[in-house]
Simulated scan of single mutants.
Amino acid sequence: MLTEKFEQLRALFQEMEQALIAYSGGVDSTLVAKIAYDALGDRALAVTAVSPSLLPEELEDAKIQAATIGIGHKIVQTHEMENPNYTSNPVNRCYFCKSELHDTLKPLALQLGYPYVVDGVNADDLHDYRPGIQAAKERGARSPLAEVGVTKVEVRQLSQQLGLPWWDKPAQPCLSSRFPYGEEITVAKLQRVGRAEIFLRKLGWQNLRVRSEGDTARIELASEQIKEFVLTTDLQKIVSAFQDFGFIYVTLDLEGYRSGKLNQVLNREVLSVKL
């Protein structure tokens, strides 16, 4: 079944003949970039959008991964932080982020002669609250993984089978996802969260989030790692570092890390919006 989906993806890109990939460096868009390059060679181009909501380390990873694949890689700037519809952090914040992204990528693709802009949306994403998907669709973007029905688990399986060393890379959505809806997003807040997560990763904790609410940082780790974290980590060192970053209070979420946790406050009416 997975082999069949892989062949469908290759055929899809061969039919496109040329494609520009919205490439964040995450495992999904990197798999798309790999398959596109293998099918199209120099007729595929990966483009990474840089803004304050992207960790600098993620940009470096994207560069390394693109170079490993061999695909051409271009970096552009996006300016969603200039849009109050985005910085006010409404429940459909991602719609305005992806609008900015694809309003940047589509003209670039046309200018460079690429008829298609494709992204890394997978089949599982279609079942979550992802208003950004609507913005991409409105601007004509295609989602090969979703079109073929490739799930997140299958993304990792395919990446591993293709020999991509980052097949098990933790998901890393934009830093704006660390804030509860309704709390204004600023560059300073994004940088504060980013520095905190980098600090913890350098200590060896990889699959994590630092959620920010006002002056409070809430650390989320995999539930099975919480005990080890409390027993083996210099907690005061972490508190001091986080306070240096600008937080006042530092807490640990006892439930543990769960993707999309901040969406649990949304009511069913919002979550049932058809994208």
Rank of each mutant, 00 (worst) to 15 (best):
E100P: 04
P84M: 08
A109E: 07
P173Y: 02
V91Q: 14
S159Y: 07
P165R: 08
A136E: 01
L164F: 10
L101V: 14
V148N: 04
W167E: 07
D128Q: 10
R178W: 09
L105E: 10
L101M: 13
N83F: 01
K202E: 15
G149S: 07
R93C: 02
N122V: 03
A141R: 04
L126H: 04
T87S: 11
P170H: 06
L203I: 11
C97I: 01
W205R: 00
G182D: 09
T186L: 08
E147D: 14
E138C: 01
K98L: 06
T186D: 01
V76I: 14
N85I: 00
S88D: 00
L101H: 00
L208N: 12
A146N: 08
Q111L: 10
V150Q: 05
G120S: 06
P180S: 04
E100A: 10
K106C: 06
T104P: 09
R142Q: 08
L101P: 03
G163P: 12
V187A: 11
D119S: 14
K98N: 02
L101G: 02
E138L: 01
Q172K: 13
L200V: 06
W167Y: 15
W205C: 01
S177W: 05
K106P: 00
G140I: 10
R195Q: 13
L203A: 12
L158P: 05
W166K: 06
P180K: 01
A171I: 00
A171R: 00
Q191M: 08
D103L: 15
V187S: 09
V91G: 00
A196Y: 01
Q134T: 14
R93H: 07
L162Y: 11
V118Q: 09
S143I: 03
E80M: 04
T104I: 02
F96C: 02
A141Q: 06
R93V: 00
